[in-house]
Simulated scan of single mutants.
Amino acid sequence: MGDHSHGSPDDSGTVAKAGTGTLDKFQDPGLPPHRKRLADTDPRAEKRAERQVALLFIISIIGTLSFFIAYFVLGRPDSLSEIRVQNSMLGLGTTFAMLGIGIGIVHWAKVLMPDHEVSEMRHAIRPEADRQDAEDIINQVIEETGIKRRPLIRNTLIGAIALAPVPAIFMFRDLEGSGKTAGQLIEQLRHTMWAKDVRLTRDPSGTPIKAADVQIGSVFHVIPEGLNETEDPLNEKAKAVVLLMRLDPTQMNVSPGREDWNVDGIVAYSKICTHVGCPVALYEQQTHHLLCPCHQSTFDLTNECKVIFGPAGRPLPQLPIAVDSNGFLVAQSDFQEPVGPSYWERG
């Protein structure tokens, strides 16, 4: 073993050199030199930084106001284009409301709050009754933020923080105002407009479909008859919309009890993906696969739409169908299982 000249510090802050018996005093290097920022030395830069922080808080306020406009002014949209516009405004408004506050506080801390390092002696723990030190620390923090001497930042921050939670309050109020319990809302998701003898009609025209109209390889986007006359057609459609296709019956694998759910190879399945509820809209005629474009969940139509790829956790629900006396396709009942994502079923 070689002779090492390194030592270790003792409790007094000295270092003993191995093999020498001498002691060297440990030198505290102290804090590194503090480099001042432009806002620390230039009053104009400080004022400019203050305006930047206030602008970010104002952006948060504008985002919240945009949410209000989309929520109250647009009201209940009547078309898909209006729904997209409203959802975009709601999402962007909430995003800017939150980001404006967050980025504003970070920018405030970086350019205006003190950034020098402080070294303090460790003190013995004092009784809880002695709160003076805690009050001094709080006052020091308030003083360092400069919020007292910067009314522009203070007022815009108060406005942004006061408005930011309001959209959530209105949304929760609407849930409460529906007059339905959580169990009732879940139960509502479990059922659709489909029922015995309800005709299958084309989406969006509402024209009834005859079995003779459905050829092998064709795809129909289907809604229940009378859906367009309901009080809330968009919500009803979101649950009830189905895809109608025809297969060669010899290519179909049918489970016991489902033998009469199709009409000579004509089958109807929910269009709502069981992953997160995106519309399944792509049909590969050669492979008889249905594809969800959102996350590529793939369902095998010849095998009762079981999942063969992707994150979906269960098959698309099948709608039992039949033919009425006039040759029109009708439902035998509602879906036998909840449609849509699995979290709808769990509630």
Rank of each mutant, 00 (worst) to 15 (best):
Cys292Lys: 02
His4Ala: 08
Thr20Asn: 12
Gln132Arg: 13
Ile161Phe: 04
Val106Ile: 13
Trp261Ala: 07
Ile266Arg: 02
Asp78Tyr: 05
Glu337Tyr: 04
Ser5Phe: 12
Ala54Thr: 03
Thr201Pro: 05
Asp197Asn: 11
Pro338Ile: 03
Val242Tyr: 00
Glu284Tyr: 15
Val330Cys: 05
Trp194Ile: 09
Pro208Leu: 08
Gln332Ile: 11
Val118Trp: 05
Phe67Gly: 03
Glu231Gly: 08
Gly63Met: 05
Arg122Gly: 00
Gln86Met: 14
Pro151Met: 04
His191Thr: 08
Asn253Ala: 14
Phe96Pro: 01
Val198Leu: 08
Asp334Glu: 09
Gly19Val: 09
Gly13Ala: 08
Gln86Gly: 11
Asp130Tyr: 11
Ile223Ala: 02
Glu117Gln: 14
His6Tyr: 00
Gly2Pro: 11
Leu234Asp: 10
Lys196His: 13
Ala195Tyr: 08
Arg314Ile: 07
Ala109Arg: 11
Ile158Glu: 08
Thr287Asp: 14
Arg126Val: 15
Thr14Gly: 06
Thr22Leu: 08
Arg346Ser: 15
Leu282Cys: 00
Val219Leu: 13
Ala129His: 05
Ala124Leu: 13
Ser205Gln: 04
Pro33Arg: 09
Asp24Glu: 15
Arg154Tyr: 00
Gly102Leu: 12
Ala54Asn: 02
Glu236Lys: 14
Thr302Ile: 05
Asp11Phe: 07
Phe72Asn: 05
Ala182Thr: 10
Pro204Arg: 03
Leu227Pro: 03
Val166Gln: 07
Glu337Lys: 04
Ser333Tyr: 01
Arg258Ala: 12
Val85Cys: 05
Thr181Gly: 09
Ser66Tyr: 04
Ser270Glu: 01
Ile186Glu: 04
Ala124Lys: 12
Asp3Val: 12
Asp197Leu: 04
Ala182Gln: 13
Val276Asn: 05
Lys36Phe: 10
Arg173Ile: 09
Lys271Asp: 02
Ser8Gly: 10
Val198Glu: 06
Val307Gly: 02
Thr181Trp: 01
Pro208Cys: 11
Ile83Leu: 10
Asp300Lys: 09
Gly104Lys: 06
Pro338Glu: 01
Leu227Lys: 03
Asp3Leu: 10
Phe67Leu: 07
Met89Ser: 07
Gln27Ser: 15
Leu290Lys: 01
Pro311Gln: 10
Ile223Tyr: 01
Gly257Ile: 00
His116Pro: 05
Leu244Gln: 00
Val263Pro: 04
Leu185Val: 06
Val73Gly: 02
Phe220Arg: 02
Pro249Lys: 07
Asp203Ala: 02
Asp24Arg: 15
Leu282Val: 06
Leu38Lys: 10
Gly206Ser: 04
Arg173Glu: 06
Ser218Gln: 13
Ile101Glu: 02
Pro224Val: 06
Met121Phe: 09
Ile272Met: 14
Ile158Lys: 10
Gln27Glu: 15
Asp40Phe: 03
Leu234Met: 15
Asp248Phe: 07
Cys278Asp: 03
Ile59Lys: 00
Val222Ile: 15
His289Ala: 01
Met89Glu: 10
Ile169Trp: 06
Val267Glu: 07
Ser5Lys: 15
Asn87Gln: 13
Gly313Cys: 00
Gln215Asp: 09
Glu284Met: 13
Ile308Trp: 03
Cys294Ser: 03
Glu46Ser: 07
Glu236Trp: 05
Ser88Arg: 10
